[in-house]
Simulated scan of single mutants.
Amino acid sequence: MISERASILLKTLVEHHIQDGQPVGSSTLLKVAGLPVSAATIRNVMSDLEERGYLHSPHTSAGRVPTALGYRLFVDTLLQIQAPEDDAVSALRAELNPDKSATELVQAASSLLSNITAQAGLVTVPRQEANQLRQVEFLPLSGNRVLVILVVNEREVQNRIIHTQRPFTEAQLRDAAAMVNQRYAGQALNQVKERILREMREARSQIDSYLEDSLDLASKALDQEGDGEECMMVGESRLLGSATAEEMPTLRDLFESFEQKKDLLHLLERSTRAEGVQIFIGEEAGYDVFGNYSVVTAPYNDGFRTLGVLGVIGPKRMEYARVIPIVDVTARMLSSALSS
């Protein structure tokens, strides 16, 4: 616990630092905070907050900046959340249209988050176990090629072309699709893959050529499913605009982490198991590369189960009062679109 006076000064300092990115001195706080105290009193309070780990004094300045612990206290107890701007809500409502496919909605959400918050926006794609096979159709093309029309979940349609070892007639493909739909429709895609491969492996010598061909077609059709990006990210370059010269080396490390995505995906996986907005400030993320950055996330769903996580990555001095409600409302509106 800190005193009311210390709370006011810490809140003022954090808000001022978020605004201009510079260390804040006691003389500035004396002018801005509006407290009937002397500059010496403010210096004493600042020294106490620094000793307790809430503030840090850069060696090049007499002013102070918040630490991750200071930001955490600010976010948890001192922050005044702003209502999302009408323009932002209108943009979200227009782009997160229920008539779009799940893939289109996820892509739109990541772009919207980046554009509205001026940070890097990210969305994990719906987890494969949440995708269910509704229907598959096979249509013959020239040569040994087959057009696959894959219906996933309620209305997401995916088209792809597969190559087969021999040509098939339209009737043969229609029969194969009917068999696959009868055996696997309504099951999770990853379970369908496993079951098809297991049946082909275990019963290769016992099944007839018709069933073998049908299973082979289904296996090829699903091979590409889930091979795409696990996480869509937009606006990484925006992080450059807010980085100081001292932060550039750590920013390069962060970009390399984005390329590998392992640390980021582990962090987002933790968010899928939580409810509502989660805020990871600096080292709270558990990875050194996030030391100068914060991640604000929220899970999204289809009305029945959590499908993934969306959020933004930005400097620790991001505008939390504005970013947090944008992430929250985007998750709610994406969930609503996917549930409709």
Rank of each mutant, 00 (worst) to 15 (best):
R305M: 07
N144S: 11
R305E: 13
R43C: 04
A178Y: 01
D328C: 04
A188H: 08
P325A: 13
R322K: 15
L338G: 01
Q107P: 00
V45C: 10
R72L: 07
R145P: 01
R204L: 13
N292G: 12
R166T: 11
L310I: 09
D20M: 06
T41N: 10
Q119E: 14
V65T: 12
L265N: 09
S110H: 06
V180K: 01
V151G: 01
L122G: 02
M1H: 12
E85C: 06
A68S: 15
V323A: 12
R270T: 09
A102E: 11
V327C: 01
D175G: 05
L133P: 00
A102R: 02
D87E: 11
R52K: 15
S110E: 08
M46H: 03
R93P: 00
G121F: 03
E256P: 00
V151R: 06
Q260M: 08
Q224P: 01
N115C: 05
K193A: 07
Q182N: 12
I42Q: 02
R64P: 03
R72K: 14
N181D: 13
E137F: 04
D253Y: 10
Y300P: 09
E246P: 01
E236R: 13
K316M: 14
Q22Y: 06
Y54C: 07
S271K: 02
Q165N: 13
L133S: 01
K262W: 04
A88H: 14
R238T: 11
R204V: 13
A91C: 08
V89E: 05
V125Y: 01
L35R: 09
P299N: 11
G311S: 09
G21E: 09
R160D: 09
V192A: 07
K100Q: 04
G291I: 10
F258A: 08
G286K: 02
L13Y: 02
L215H: 03
L307R: 02
E15M: 06
M248V: 15
R52H: 11
A218T: 03
R238P: 03
S27P: 00
Q19F: 12
V125S: 04
P84Q: 10
L217S: 07
A130C: 08
P299V: 08
A88T: 11
L268K: 01
L55R: 07
D213K: 04
T67W: 02
R134K: 15
T169N: 04
A118T: 12
L240N: 14
R183W: 10
G143P: 02
E129T: 13
D175A: 14
L49V: 07
S27I: 04
S57N: 10
E15H: 02
K11C: 04
G226V: 12
E154F: 10
H16F: 08
I81N: 04
E284Y: 09
L267H: 00
F280D: 12
Y287F: 15
Q80T: 12
D227E: 15
A62N: 12
A298V: 01
Q187E: 13
L49C: 09
Q187G: 03
G314A: 11
E4Q: 11
H17C: 10
I149Q: 05
L150V: 08
T169L: 07
L35G: 08
V151D: 06
R252A: 14
I207R: 08
M200G: 09
A130S: 13
L211K: 08
V151P: 00
Y287G: 03
E319Y: 05
R195H: 14
D253F: 05
L310D: 02
S257D: 06
K220T: 01
L49N: 06
S205K: 10
E95Q: 15
M233I: 15
V45F: 03
K262Y: 07
